[in-house]
Design a protein around this nucleic acid. Structure first.
Lengths: 218, 218
DNA sequence: ACCTGAACACCGTTCAAGT
DNA sequence: ACCTGAACACCGTTCAAGT
């Protein structure tokens, strides 16, 4: 893989590479076949010789970005740590390429999802869950990861216009803090944590929470 | 709310109502301002008098569809049952209107998300979690719900072309069952459950898993 | 105040024609 | 085999003009 045929001459890999770059700095809306072909100094329709359509291109980009996570070997850590490592691998990929959050659920990137579910499932199995519950436990972990991915994607979309993460979070926290305490007691009390939490830590706490649920259901 | 001014005369409510109907039976791509204005027997631009743009329209539709879940009162059930009730309310809304799965994460429907987080948060509080952990526990539950919502949305998108849920699930299970057992031991062993599980039950198991994680972290 | 509908600036995708 | 670029059938959105 990644057999670049050279600087000139289109290739699926060069197209995917360029698509990822555009997605990374402009979000999903920034990826158009016209802009892509301009960047690649080729005609609008040329891309279709290498890629069936936009959906396939997005799926290929998603797969490329998740390559590391999809490949990984667990070594001889505990199942618990292995799950955390897989999840964190996903988190970091999503963090660097938030647009994959909108892709992971889709049918087009099903083979990537299957590999991830497989890796998580093996660890859930090793955790000693009874057979009948392994499937549900694994999909709970996977759904949680997808949920975080989707929120990251949405946040990144909101960020395209300007403001950075800290600014956005600060604004959100300010809104929470200014709510009617009779109607929104919880949000008010959590406004502080909303304002300065660490996304990665929050994510890990979620994984741990589910893992300890799995532990107590064993 | 829902003050229909009559059969004739546009109104925000009539527009949102029509938009929901179109989204329900054609998915997100089926909602265009042209098709919408045809259905409402009006001009393409008329809608913009009542709605700022498509994003706002989608947010309004999402809010309308979640109205019941957003309003609800918990009565005097246990916190655990209250969380399950809120979550199931979300699940059913998502099940009937899968397109909201793509909206919930977004900034446009933030006020809806805030209400849901508030309701869940209050119950997590009642569950006896220490203050510092309530925020993370609540957002774990919320992220999980969003993840399931996103997958439902993606599945519904795949279904637009034809095949129903059972068919799609059967096909997926068949793929899992035919995988190389050396490379995909987990997916193979779970193929049966993949084929005939109940989505609602799977969702509830996830909620329970997180709840029991919360219980043991208390 | 509210609606019309043509017009603008885009899209993804196709396809005859070139090399 | 691979690429070009015009053309097709759409989009969301705007806005002068109507009532």
């Amino acid at each position: 893989m990644a057999t670049r045929t050279g600087q000139d001459g289109l290739s699926r890999d060069r197209i995917v590479e360029a698509a990822i770059a555009m997605l990374d700095d402009g979000g999903e809306n920034a990826l158009t076949f016209r802009a892509l072909s301009t960047r690649l100094k080729t005609g609008a329709g040329a891309i279709y010789w290498h890629v069936a359509n936009k959906e396939e291109l997005l799926a290929a980009a998603t797969q490329a970005v998740l390559a590391d996570v999809l490949r990984g070997d667990e070594g001889d850590t505990t199942p618990r740590d292995a799950v955390r490592a897989i999840a964190l691998g996903m988190f970091d990929a999503i963090d660097h390429h938030p647009w994959i959050g909108g892709q992971l659920g889709g049918l087009a990137s099903r083979s990537a999802s299957m590999r991830i579910i497989e890796r998580i499932g093996q660890q859930v199995q090793a955790l000693g869950m009874p057979q009948e519950h392994q499937f549900f436990a694994t999909s709970t972990l996977f759904s949680f990861i997808l949920g975080v991915a989707g929120q990251n994607a949405a946040n990144a979309r909101a960020r395209v216009g300007g403001r950075g993460r800290a600014e956005l979070l600060g604004a959100e926290a300010a809104i929470w803090a200014s709510l009617d305490p009779a109607e929104f007691p919880f949000l008010r009390s959590a406004a502080g944590q909303m304002g300065d939490h660490d996304d990665r830590e929050q994510f890990l706490v979620g994984i741990d929470l589910i893992l300890s649920g799995i532990g107590s259901a064993r």
